[in-house]
Amino acid sequence: MTATSAARPQSRRSSWAWVALALVVLAIIAGIGTYLTAPRPGDTMDPSATDPDGARALATLLRDGGVEVVVADTIGDVERATRPDTLILVAQSQYLTDDGLLDRLAKAPGDLLLVEPTVRAREALMPGVRISPSSSFDSDPNCSLREATRAGAVRFGPSDSYVVGKDRTVTSCYDGVLIRYRDGGRTVTAVGNTDFMTNGGLAQAGNAALAMNLAGDRPRLIWYAPHHAEGETSSGTSLSDMIPDNVIWAAGQLWLVVLLVALWKGRRPGPLVSEQLPVVVRASETVEGRGRLYRSRRARDRAAVALRTATLQRLLPRLGLGPQAPPQAVIATAAQRGGADAGFVSYHLFGPPPATDNDLLQLARALDDIERQVAHS
């Protein structure tokens, strides 16, 4: 068995190891990409949810338009974040079942935008306002409210229409689906439909324009859309519950592919087979090749060291000296045995490196003469 035949299985294993590593990296990248692009499920009007009932599209448009959107999970978050110049968006009011929480919300500074409020929320936040059913799907503003006239026709779907007593000045739009009035120094806006603000309904008619005009009326928006009644604890979720199913499915498929490739390429290749070297290189060719390499790099010093080292390795046994013999002993013994001048021997065995190619050639000849004289003595 030769070195070449032994090296081939190792190179194969190394190449397939890199292939397996590349597949693992691709699997990780694919999993991350799938996770980042996967839908984010959530409740209705959740500003981080990307499903049709969520409202991430509206929240993103508002932020891109320069509105500071602050998501509040509790009434306490609303109270800490709100200011007189802010707008409080209240949605999912069916979870506001505590009268005390509604009273705190009514006392919070800032204007109100009530999205499809429940009966309890209307009694606490907009008293004196009644509702009547409306079957209008596509509706024109039919009012002077700037936010509505700029949006134009809006597709609400089945919505509630608001009816306000004559003792209050109210701007009513879209056949009463949208109203606005002043109450105790604050502006209260109520809309009897939620769908036009969600991801699924935002692209219809003038829905997006009306949603942005209403929610972006102030530079700071407090988004309060609770997902459960305050004071109740939501069901705990683990990390695996937060990972979308399609990510787990894609990762499982990729790992199966990696396993199959590993089993396919990891099979035993069989016993090693000895082979003859395809080419026999003569020693003279090796010497000539090394000499050309030295010459191309002008490495006369290294060539001289190689010549002197090889000469000393052959001379020392003939002179009866050991490998660690001092230079003076080598010079004296070689001069005595060969009958040459000690200075001549010292210069060529331990002298400075040659300055030119011709000096290197002369050094090689002189070393050959010293070795020949010692051998014939």
Results as ranks from 00 to 15, higher is better:
88 I>D: 01
36 L>T: 09
271 P>V: 08
348 H>W: 00
83 R>S: 15
339 G>N: 03
97 T>I: 10
317 P>G: 01
93 S>A: 00
53 D>I: 14
291 G>P: 00
270 G>S: 08
72 A>N: 01
165 G>S: 06
14 S>C: 10
164 V>R: 02
268 R>E: 12
19 V>G: 10
272 L>M: 13
278 P>I: 05
61 L>A: 12
15 S>C: 01
163 V>H: 09
171 T>E: 11
112 L>M: 05
283 A>G: 06
283 A>H: 06
32 I>N: 05
71 V>W: 06
13 R>G: 13
243 I>E: 07
322 G>R: 07
249 W>F: 06
92 Q>C: 12
149 T>Q: 03
88 I>P: 02
153 A>S: 15
22 A>Y: 12
355 A>Q: 04
147 E>H: 10
295 R>P: 05
221 L>G: 08
51 D>C: 09
4 T>P: 08
296 S>R: 13
170 V>A: 04
52 P>H: 10
203 A>D: 15
218 R>D: 05
135 S>D: 13
105 L>T: 07
89 L>S: 00
343 G>S: 02
308 R>V: 02
57 A>L: 06
312 L>E: 04
44 T>K: 03
275 E>A: 13
199 N>F: 09
303 A>P: 00
122 R>N: 13
118 T>R: 02
198 T>Q: 04
85 D>G: 09
251 A>Q: 08
47 P>K: 12
322 G>S: 06
365 R>Y: 12
276 Q>W: 09
324 Q>W: 02
373 Q>F: 11
198 T>P: 00
358 N>H: 07
250 A>N: 13
21 L>V: 12
302 R>L: 15
184 G>I: 05
352 P>T: 14
151 A>Q: 14
180 R>T: 10
292 R>F: 07
207 N>S: 01
376 H>L: 13
245 D>Q: 14
343 G>L: 09
28 I>Q: 00
110 G>N: 09
87 L>Y: 01
140 D>N: 15
312 L>G: 01
233 T>K: 07
341 D>G: 09
349 L>V: 00
125 L>R: 11
162 Y>G: 03
330 V>T: 00
174 Y>L: 04
323 P>Y: 04
245 D>I: 08
105 L>N: 05
262 A>C: 13
89 L>Y: 02
233 T>Y: 02
72 A>G: 08
316 L>K: 07
364 A>S: 15
4 T>F: 15
280 V>L: 14
331 I>P: 13
65 G>N: 06
349 L>Y: 04
305 V>S: 15
71 V>L: 07
106 A>I: 07
26 L>F: 11
360 L>C: 06
145 L>A: 12
75 I>Q: 04
309 T>E: 14
313 Q>F: 07
118 T>N: 01
24 V>Y: 01
181 Y>W: 09
340 A>V: 12
56 R>M: 09
227 H>R: 10
368 D>G: 13
320 G>Y: 08
156 F>Q: 07
92 Q>G: 08
285 E>Y: 08
283 A>K: 05
73 D>K: 14
146 R>D: 12
42 G>M: 03
376 H>S: 15
94 Q>G: 13
347 Y>K: 05
142 N>W: 10
95 Y>S: 08
208 A>R: 10
26 L>G: 12
40 R>C: 06
75 I>A: 09
9 P>L: 05
273 V>L: 04
213 N>H: 14
83 R>M: 11
8 R>L: 11
213 N>T: 11
223 W>F: 09
81 A>M: 09
